[in-house]
């Protein structure tokens, strides 16, 4: 049980990193970014390149990967989102799909098809009761936790956080009160890129990176933010963990000796569960029923 819980924490942290950024962007800009999985992979691949090809220390490589993530997110915002999203909020949907294809090609060209691992080899495992966990995984869980906690602090206890929440609630009203919404938009988008890159780097350390992995990453993040209530940051985070726990706990065991869910359905089971929930709470698990006009 403890091991399954830890497994869920590991997978959930990865999901939360990617989904959290996505939820912020949707909440603040109302924009869907479908190139997010690719942005995560590029962050991971950059770190791999810095660490394995240039032989820089891991910490510097990770910083480099995050920097590349930020840079890529900024360029994405300026070229693929900023010129469009004010005209219609669905336009960036198309432009970021185009971007995701461009990035897919770029990843194949730059890093080839073969799998890459940032830290190859066996991880040092620590025994905790009857469960085992590696230092890298402890690090990931803690870092995700620290990131989320500091985020909570910024969002709820600082002037800057209040401005963000104001923009989420009503952009034009916030604007009229002198909050520079366009700068906030840019910052939030870049932040989502950094969080995604964080996810990609973790994936590259814990498992390995392959070019085809981008789309499943994006899909899971979307499942989390939709289930969490569109644009609800904490809902998305919680749902990312929820999906991960469901995946760990539901499959591979005999339920009351009656039925058995094979591992092949691991990913479907969690999504089916969420669809079921949404039938009863269509506006999201963590949102009080939305006011209809």
């Amino acid at each position: 049980m403890v091991q399954l819980f830890i497994n869920g924490l590991i997978a959930g942290s990865l999901g939360a990193l990617v989904a959290g950024g996505l939820a912020l962007v949707y909440g603040v800009l109302g924009v869907f970014n479908l190139a997010l999985g690719q942005m995560a992979l590029i962050g991971g691949y950059s770190t791999w390149w810095l660490h394995q090809s240039l032989h820089l220390p891991l910490s510097i490589s990770i910083l480099g990967g995050l920097l590349v993530g930020a840079l890529l997110a900024w360029l994405t915002f300026e070229i693929f989102v900023n010129p469009f999203y004010r005209r219609h909020r669905f336009l960036p949907l198309v432009t970021t799909i185009a971007l995701s294809m461009i990035l897919d090609g770029a990843i194949l060209l730059l890093f080839q098809e073969r799998p890459r691992s940032i830290v190859p080899g066996l991880k040092k495992m620590v025994q905790m009761g009857d469960a085992r966990i590696s230092m890298e995984q402890v690090g990931l869980i803690l870092i995700t936790f620290v990131l989320l906690a500091s985020f909570a602090y910024v969002l709820h206890s600082t002037a800057f956080g209040r401005k963000i929440r104001a923009v989420v609630q009503h952009e034009h009203a916030a604007w009229s009160l002198g909050i520079p919404a366009h700068i906030l938009h840019r910052l939030i988008f870049i932040l989502s890129g950094v969080l995604a890159a964080c996810g990609g780097i973790f994936l590259g350390i814990d498992q390995n990176l392959t070019p085809i992995f981008a789309f499943p990453l994006t899909i899971k993040a979307y499942a989390a933010i939709i289930a969490g209530g569109k644009g609800n940051f904490w809902g998305a985070i919680l749902c990312a963990y929820l999906i991960a726990f469901l995946e760990q706990f539901v499959v591979g065991i005999h339920w009351f000796g009656l039925f058995y869910v094979p591992a092949g359905y691991q990913q479907s089971v969690a999504l089916v569960f969420i669809i079921f929930f949404l039938l009863f709470k269509p506006s999201g698990l963590f949102v009080r029923s939305a006011r209809a006009a």
């Binding site: 497994n7 997978a11 498992q207 992995f213 499943p216 591979g252 591992a263």
Partner: peptide, 8 residues
């Protein structure tokens, strides 16, 4: 393309 086998 599964990469997380921990629960299994």
């Amino acid at each position: 393309d599964t990469k997380d086998f921990r629960s299994l």
